[in-house]
Amino acid sequence: MEIKDPLEDKFNAAFSGFEQEPPPGVWEKLRGQLHPELQRQSFWSRIPFIRFFRNRPPGFHIAIGGITLGLTLGLIYLNSGDHHAIRGHAYAGQVRLKQGSSVLFRLEDQTLPWDSVNPFRTERMDEKGHFRFSRLRPGRYVLLITPDRGSETAKRFIPTWYDRCERSDSCSVIELTDQDVTLDAILLDWSDR
């Protein structure tokens, strides 16, 4: 072993605890080499949405796919074509009908007797006696207003077709075209029969 001179001592002392931070990115490269599988997934695995769906059973994906398709078709349906509303207030005498329902019928075929058509949609009256049928396709409709069975109103008024008709075959047809229809439906009194 040679005797060390001051130069060697200087170097030895200077570098015995010498440290310098490596450039950024070394660990990322190293991790990529140590775990190539993480490197392949690195882009997608950063997205929490993708992580959530990864490794789920096929049934889960089918269910999610079905729901997504349904929602998409629903949105397409709701946003396609012209859709308008039939709305208004129902009155029992001078008072707005609050305990009752409005039933809308769509006339698909004019030759059918109107009594044979099925209710197209039913809406409850709100607390202001208002009804609203939204997102209706253009067409021909008839409307029936009925007070709730057993209510005080039902004791005085009968189910009434718009406009103030006891029977459907004589009621007014609501033509829905390219704009909303607003109307007032008035119930017939028993004494009107």
Partner: peptide
Amino acid sequence: KEVDAEYMLYERYAARMYGL
């Protein structure tokens, strides 16, 4: 092969070994 442990080992020696 736990990545966080590998990172800890890396952090412990990176500066010293980069100096070397």
